[in-house]
Computed example of a mutant assay.
Amino acid sequence: MFYVVTGGSGSGKSAYAEELIIRSGSGPRIYIATMYPYDEESHKRIARHRQMRAKKEFETVECYTDLASAQIPEGANVLLECMSNLTANELFRPEGARKDVSLSIMKGIRHLLDSCKNLIVVTNEIFSDGIRYDDETRNYQRILGDINVWMASISDHVTEIVYGIPLIFK
């Protein structure tokens, strides 16, 4: 099964996605972490999240770019968090895809779907704040939006979390 979970910052989407993985049955639980550790605070946040996930029997795989190269055990239950970070890394990091971001990420999602039992992708709803951003940020939003639309079109389930409440769209 392929699930897409979206929502705003602090909405509860991560907890919801983790619970989906826990209830998904047998097989290894893999957490693909996409947040690049760029400072002391991010290193502390990553360590805290690893600790929290360890209690839930997740194995963490760091993957900042090139999702198609991620080594995932056959039949695993995979939680990718989050598409927003992965998209930014592919667009802005020197080792990222830079120009073919959507194609690179779509190839990576297909790779995961071919090898895992269940895939849950967490993404952010960053499109409705009403702020007019610079061209570079709008380009990032457009790419992330295209990826989100594509994922929703091929997924089995799409859920938006609003104030901790799941709104099921598909």
Rank of each mutant, 00 (worst) to 15 (best):
F2Q: 02
V4I: 14
V4H: 03
V4D: 01
V5I: 15
T6Q: 10
G8F: 01
S9C: 11
G10W: 04
S11Y: 15
G12P: 13
S14Q: 07
E19W: 00
I21D: 08
R23L: 15
S24G: 06
G25C: 05
Y31L: 06
I32L: 05
I32G: 05
A33S: 13
P37I: 05
Y38H: 08
E41A: 10
A47V: 06
H49G: 00
Q51C: 03
M52C: 01
A54Q: 10
K55L: 07
K56I: 02
E57Y: 10
F58P: 15
V61D: 05
E62M: 11
Y64D: 05
A68N: 09
E74P: 00
L79I: 04
L79S: 09
L80C: 10
L80R: 09
C82K: 08
S84I: 02
L86Q: 00
A88M: 06
N89F: 03
E90K: 03
K99E: 12
K99L: 10
S102V: 13
S104T: 07
I105D: 09
M106V: 00
K107R: 14
G108F: 06
I109M: 03
R110M: 05
R110H: 03
H111Y: 11
H111M: 14
S115F: 02
C116A: 08
N118K: 11
V121M: 02
N124I: 06
I126A: 01
F127V: 01
G130M: 13
N139P: 00
Q141V: 04
G145Y: 04
D146S: 12
V149Y: 00
W150L: 11
M151A: 09
A152R: 09
S153P: 04
S155E: 02
D156P: 03
D156T: 04
E160Q: 14
Y163L: 06
G164M: 04
P166T: 15
L167Q: 11
L167P: 03
I168V: 13
I168D: 03
K170G: 12
K170L: 13
